[in-house]
Amino acid sequence: MSKYWHVINIGIQSTLVYRVNFLVRALFGLVPLFALILLWRAIYEGAKGPDVGGYQLSEVITYYLMVNVVVALTAVTEDDWQIAADIRDGRISQFLLKPIDYLKYRLCLFAAGRMVYTAAALVPMGVFLWFQRDHLQAPASAGHFAAFGLALALTALLQFFISFTMALLAFWVLEVATFIFILFAFEYVAGGHLFPLDMLPPTLLKVLHLTPFPYMLYFPVRVYLGRVEGAELWQGLGIQAFWVLATLGLARWVWSRGLRHYSAVGG
């Protein structure tokens, strides 16, 4: 186990190089978020009542703020490109020879990257949340907050395993970017990044819940808002855990298939 702590350590040190880049990215990311909040304010001003699509203004604003917090903490940014490049350039050969598991190795680097990103984004995000404090709702209760933490951890794992599996397509095709972007587009809308999913027609929402996408973002945010309670909460966490295990299994399976196909180009 201790060797993986070293990986995390190295990961933190090497991503620290990009701290200014992360800061810039976090700052630029706030502009569209702010624009979205202003847009929703304009929508509520023109609305007939205080309720639009089952949300009050504060709830919608909190929704978008928490979406951005969850994304900062759990989204895969560079990892999939790097994994695909490792495979394409034959750099994974060295991992096949060493007593180190590539999936665990990448998971450690992912964790390290998120820690550094979160640290870099903390100040701009914190200042922004402070300015929006009138509309930022606290979690419904300590219990909800604990459940949110758990859902957040499962979300991070789910995000990582899905991205890892997608990157493994590099065993078969040269250019994985398009596939990753297509998946990302689906995740963007079906994960609830653009709008709260329960604003969609109920049948469509039911269909979406058969896919892992809502559990990659929408679910933890809903838990934070206190909109999932009791049995539904446990059921949701259970489904999330199921998807984590399923995608882990898929990642392992694709990896072993890929290795059979692997020709160590340039390695």
Partner: peptide, 9 residues
């Protein structure tokens, strides 16, 4: 989706 819940922005 927005316009399914409101008439105008």
């Amino acid at each position: 989706v927005i316009y399914s819940h409101t008439d105008r922005i």
